[in-house]
Amino acid sequence: MKELKIFGIVIVFTLVLYWGVEPFAHSQMHKHVEGDGFAYSDLKAVTVKGDAKRGETLAAACIGCHSIEAKSMPAPMNAVASAEAYGVNPPDLSMAGALLDEKYLTHFLLNPAEVTKSKHFAMPPSAGSEQDAADIVAYLQSFAPKEVKPKEAYEFACGRCHANRYGNWTQIGDVPKTKSNIKTGVDLDALKFQGNLGIYQNKLADYMGKLPPDLSIIIRARSEHFLETLIEDPQSQLPGTAMPRVGVTKEGFEKVREYLEETGDPSKPARESIGKWVILFFVGFTILAFFWKKEKWHGHH
């Protein structure tokens, strides 16, 4: 039928147009980075077996800077004082064993600057031998939680450099609930928090070269492939960036991605559940319209 032929031509031109301005243009604009599936294959396999008991003794060195809340070991300094000392707040280690790749973490303890690919990385080498490193890793894994919440993964892996204002998160923690003075409208606690955050961010910007961006809606600003390969190895997507390779596992990345989706694209579940009903409605509408048209055109040809 002639009309269907015309329809086919319109569809073909539309699809060609779409292909040219979307998939094709983007394939030409962005360099292709092949992911490694969080295998960290540039690092040698660890041949020794870690001993958690021995690791516990060795980990005494860690708590000079890091807290381990899971073991009720508090941080020696608060976030702001830590940033003033090191440029950034060192992470709590409760979840390190759960979120970080074992091989990565072992090599990291031996030589943080090289393994993170971040020359000015604040942490010094912290294990004397591969055996020591493996022992500490075994210790960290011994108390790591089985299940990590998305926000916890974000806090650990990203949150000390990247705020997430849609998730109410700042580099020094959640924005606290405070009350303003009813007579003046002044909220001293909020101002204090903002002041502390400001000090932290200034120190962080000095340490990193600039303030790392807020990641509230990064899930819509970058493709999933970009985020995955960037987190796996920042240098692959942004050569020369100050961002360190964090060393998360595939599951750890999935948790981070989940959190980014919660803050940046919260309507996704609603979209997917409502969408099919709306489309179904219009399918019904179209079928009825077809019969109406048939009736109205009856006898016209």
Binding site: R271, V278, I279, T286, I287, W292, K293, K296
Partner: peptide, 25 residues
């Protein structure tokens, strides 16, 4: 109205299926 419109509405139905597919997915 109503003959031309009946065809318009049918074409519109087909269009809205595609349109809302794009909106949601």
């Amino acid at each position: 109205k109503p003959v031309f419109l009946s065809k318009d509405v049918f074409v519109m139905g087909v269009y809205f299926i595609a349109f809302f597919y794009l909106v949601f997915y």
